[in-house]
Write a protein that binds this DNA or RNA. Structure first.
Length: 152
DNA sequence: GCCAACGTTGGC
DNA sequence: GCCAACGTTGGC
């Protein structure tokens, strides 16, 4: 089993939005970065756990989700009216993929990006690298546990 | 709102 | 294949 961190802008889609869905499950569409796509397509498996990260406003990890369905074509790329439309991607040859994730828990206290920078054991996190912009990235089990324990 | 860092595009 | 220009991300 692997561990991940996935970013979202809460103004667009927050952990509360996820928890409020009937099945508490959503398709993680709109990823348009090859490195992030490759992680989803090649390495993400059902049951993997995800640190749910809010960016922009109060950046930090706010909870945990779980992968419910492995990569399948991101149909929003086919839709000219969609903000993430990409004409290079077609139903025959989909370029972009998405996974489904399910709500697991919301932290009592969000683990802010600022706080994470000072925590021993998190120094190696991709998220903390200067200029890190990846929206889907792997984390180690140790990092996952540290962040989870801080949030609970 | 600013701007550093980064990925992507496209001319050559 | 190089690299400048550009657009985007995202912290602050």
């Amino acid at each position: 089993m692997k561990y991940w961190l996935m970013k979202t802008e809460p103004g667009c889609f927050s952990i509360d939005d996820l928890a409020a869905l009937p099945k508490q499950t959503t398709s993680w569409d709109g990823v348009r970065n090859f490195q992030a796509r490759n992680f989803m397509r090649d390495e993400m498996r059902v049951g993997d756990l995800v640190l749910f990260y809010h960016s922009v406003t109060a950046p930090g990890v706010v909870g945990i989700a779980r992968v419910e369905r492995e990569a399948y074509p991101d149909h929003t790329a086919f839709d000219p009216d969609d903000a993430h439309y990409d004409p290079r991607s077609t139903p025959d040859k989909p370029l972009w993929v998405m996974v489904d994730v399910r709500f697991v828990e919301k932290f009592c206290a969000p683990v802010s990006l600022r706080a994470m920078r000072g925590i021993k054991g998190l120094e190696g996190m991709e998220l903390l690298r200067r200029g890190s912009r990846l929206s889907v990235m792997p984390v180690t089990e140790a990092e996952f546990r540290i962040v989870r324990d801080l949030g609970r």
